[in-house]
Design a protein around this nucleic acid. Sequence first.
RNA 1: GGCGGCGUAGCCAAGUGGCUAAGGCAACGGAUUGCAAAUCCGUCAUUCACCGGUUCGAGUCCGGUCGCCGCCUCCA
Length: 472
Amino acid sequence: MSFQVYNSLTRKKQPFEPIDAGQVRMYNCGPTVYGRAHIGNLRSFLFADTLRRWLEHEGLEVKQVMNITDVGHITADADQGEDKLDAQARKEGRDPWKISEQHTEEFLADLAALDFLEASIYPRATAHIEEMLEMIDGLLEKGHAYRAGDNVYFDVSSFAEYGKLSGNKVEDLAAGARIDVLEEKRAPADFALWKSDPAHLMKWESHFGPHGFPGWHIECSAMARTHLGDRIDIHTGGEDNIFPHHECEIAQSEAFTGEPFANYWMHAKFLQVDGGKMSKSLGNVYTLSDVESRGFRPRDLRFTLLRGHYRQPLNFTWAIMADSARALAKLDDLVTRLKRIADGQEGAAEATAGEDLVRAAKQAFRAAMNDDLNTPPAIAQLFGLRDHAVQECLGSAAAALALEFLAGVQGALGILDMQEESLDQETQDIFNERIRARENKEWARSDKLRDELLERGIVVEDTGGRTVWRKR
RNA sequence: GGCGGCGUAGCCAAGUGGCUAAGGCAACGGAUUGCAAAUCCGUCAUUCACCGGUUCGAGUCCGGUCGCCGCCUCCA
């Protein structure tokens, strides 16, 4: 059973085989830090996190690089282009370095709140200016780039494979260009490697001039090469990155090294909100803060985003978030039940009863994940397992096996709550007191204690002859 | 205009030529319960946007129509 991934480059699913056996070099296109990440950004990064988790689940060692673009993307075509960071800095009247620093911290905090595994490194574009210049010089030497004053452009005509990722043809691009072509460019499709502008806020002195800054695409090529080498296994991003960003990265990197850049390109589809696109004018560009202020946990968002396949458009609504929270409660219940069964408190009499059911669920889960990270049917297996637990089909040994399986699921998806929870002594005393009150049928007193516990965030349930508690 | 994706029950979402179309939520009926909450049992798509075609057989392949989404130098 091998891991099949959909490769945007070949437009089909193929078995994943790393360049070096047992090791994966993965580059995730990260955020441009001029504002707070929204749930659409988070979907794309969650896909990268899931991919990394699954590769590790399958026993591979992953070096994961997620870049932080902290210098603006200026579009290639001069003054009509907008540098997001530069623009934001002017708008706020603040230092762009401060802005990027603030949003970088915010971004990493969002990832942590959502239980993302920490990447091996989060390189900053501004810390790789030298490496970018090195590549630009190399491209000039090899005739893949040319200077126009203090600017440097990549010569698309020098790279025959330009368009192999996106399927675009250079001729069609020229015809569809929305922005007037700069005189100094030799061809409309050529893109900037290095630009110069005295008015720019973030700029670097180089042999191209005193007021330079990098083009949009070169930072990823340089950072990937610096941290992962000339050839990498996987490069990810949102579907919008396919063109021009990734197409240009391929051109730069492969023209520079003369070798294939990334073997697998994987892209996440855009998240939709209320059946349509997210847009500022509709006011539906939500962030993790919005999610939390509506009373949802980061975990609810994580689950919602994993309920759809990463390559399908996913529709986000607040109703679905509520739906997810309820579904997660069922999975929490599964964990609790399995623990009780494993302890012999309930379940089938024979310890090994249902082991085959657990093994089948585990295998189906793995098969789904191995099919290009098909998380929806993988998650469905958990509910199937829950049915078996509820119907008392599982014995203590089977439950222990199931818990082991769920630990693996947690490693891969990060949506479960496996924590061993306990009450502090005071709360435990109130809880015990309530049980005594109920035994004595002191209903008023019992209800008062129940309210007290609720204030402490503990929900009490009198179920099936025993009283149990859970958080929230 | 060029290129690509999608349209499955009230909502979300699997399924990519072949047994009775996964799973979740909601809804409805019942059980249980001091109350409450939770839980449990059951019901819930003769049909896959629409129209044609290929095939012994199609949600799955082909053509057309309608709708939504994305890219074509801001975007995850």
